[in-house]
Computed example of a mutant assay.
Amino acid sequence: MLTKTTRGKHFRLWGLSLIVTSVMALSACGSDKNGDVSQGSESAGNQPAEVKVTKVTQVTNWFAEPEHGGQYAALSKGFYKDAGLDMTIQPGGPGVSASQIVASGKAEFGMGQADEILLARENGIPLVAIAATFQKNPQGIMYHKDKYKDISELNGHKVYVGSGVAFWEYLKKAYKLDTVQEMKYTGSLANFVADPESATQIYVTSEPFTMQQEGVDVDYFLNYDLGYKQYGNILFTTEDYIKDHPDIVKAYVEASIKGWDYYKDNSEEINKVMQEKNPDLKLEAMAFGTKAQEALVYGGDAETNGVGYMNKEIWEGLQKQLVDIGILKKTAPIDEAFTNEFLPAK
Rank of each mutant, 00 (worst) to 15 (best):
T3Q: 10
W14Q: 14
G15W: 10
L16E: 13
L18G: 06
M24E: 14
A28P: 00
D32T: 12
V37L: 09
S41F: 14
A44M: 10
A44T: 14
P48R: 10
E65G: 02
G70H: 05
M87F: 12
P91N: 11
G93E: 04
P94M: 07
S97K: 01
Q113P: 02
A114T: 08
L118E: 13
E122N: 11
E122W: 06
A129C: 09
I130W: 06
I130S: 07
A132Y: 04
G140K: 10
M142K: 06
D146K: 14
S152Q: 08
N155I: 00
S163I: 07
F167V: 07
Q181I: 14
M183E: 15
M183D: 07
K184G: 03
Y185C: 04
S188R: 08
S188M: 07
L189N: 05
A194P: 02
Q201F: 06
I202P: 03
I202T: 02
V204E: 06
V216R: 01
V216M: 01
Y220H: 13
F221R: 00
L226W: 07
L235E: 11
T237L: 00
I242R: 09
K243P: 00
D244E: 15
A251S: 15
Y252S: 05
D261W: 03
N266W: 09
I270T: 08
E276N: 14
G289F: 01
Q293W: 06
N305C: 00
Y309N: 07
Q321F: 01
K329C: 02
T331K: 15
